[in-house]
Amino acid sequence: MTPPSDKPLVSLRDVHFAYGERVVLSGIDLTVHRGQLVAIMGGSGCGKTTLLRLIGGQLTAGSGAVEVAGRDVGRMSERELYAMRRRMGMLFQFGALFTDMSVFENVAFPLREHSALPPELVRDLVLMKLEAVGLRGAQAMRPGELSGGMARRVALARAVALDPMLVLYDEPFAGLDPISLGIVGQLIRRLNDALGASSVMVTHDVHESLEIVDYIYFVSNGRIVARGTPDEIRASTDPFVHQFVNAEADGPVPFHYPATPIEALLAGEAQ
C-alpha cells in the first residue's frame, strides 16, 4: 500500500447535493491521498455515482467544497474544468466505447484530440495501452464484437491513455462474469500503481473491492456511515457494514420502502 502523502489529491468537505427537492448527499467528507485506490460503496441509488460526478465536475455541489489537486471544482470555468479533465480518466459503467470507431481508434481518441503527436507515436502509445490490458490482438475489432469484460478493458485503456493523475471508476464490475471481474479488478490495481495515479471507484461489489483497494467509504441515504481500510471493514461490527458485507436482506437498510403499516391497510379494507 502506498503511504498517504500529506496533501490529499481529492478532498470533499461537508458536501450537500440535491436534485430539486430530493436530497441526494448531505454532509459528505471524503479524502483521497495520492497513490491511493479508494472505493465508495453503498446500495443502488444511494448517491455514490453522484459523488463521482461531483469530483469530475459534471455536477456542482449545493454547498461545501469539492477540491481536486487543491482547486475547487465547482468554481472552475469551462476552460479550467476541461484542463483538469485532461489529467483525469473515467471508466463508465458499461464502458461507453464509441460505437462508430474500432478498438484502436477508441483508445487513440483522447491522444488525437489533445495532442499533435505524429501518427507513429500515437500508434505505439495505443498499442502499449492495449498491451497493458491484454487486448493488443483485438485492436481492429469493433465495440459491438467485444464481450462485456473486453469492452471494459478497452475502456480502461482509453481512460488511462493520457496517463491521468486521477482515475474515476463508475461500477467497473457491473455485469461481469467472475473471471472478467477478477481480471478487471487486478488491472485497476496494477494500472493505479504503474501510473502512480490515484483512483476513486464506485461499486457495490464488496468482496472484489476488499481485495484491491486501500480505503473504503460506505454511503447510505446520502451520508457516509462507515469508513476504513479493508482490514478494519472486515473486522467491523457496524450493523450497516455487516449487512452489506454479508448481503443480508434486512437490517439498517430496510427491506420495505416506507409505507403505511400493512395492518392498517388490511383493517381499512375489511370495513
Binding site: Y82, R85, M88, M90, F92, A96, F98, T99, F109, E113
Partner: peptide
C-alpha cells in the same frame, strides 16, 4: 446516432475526456 451516444454515455465519456460533444 446522437440519442444512442447519449443513452450509452458516450457523450458523457467524451465530455469527461475534455472533448466538448457539442463541438465534436
Amino acid at each position: 446516432e446522437i440519442g444512442l451516444m447519449k443513452a450509452t454515455e458516450q457523450l458523457k465519456a467524451m465530455d469527461m475526456m475534455a472533448v466538448n460533444p457539442l463541438a465534436r
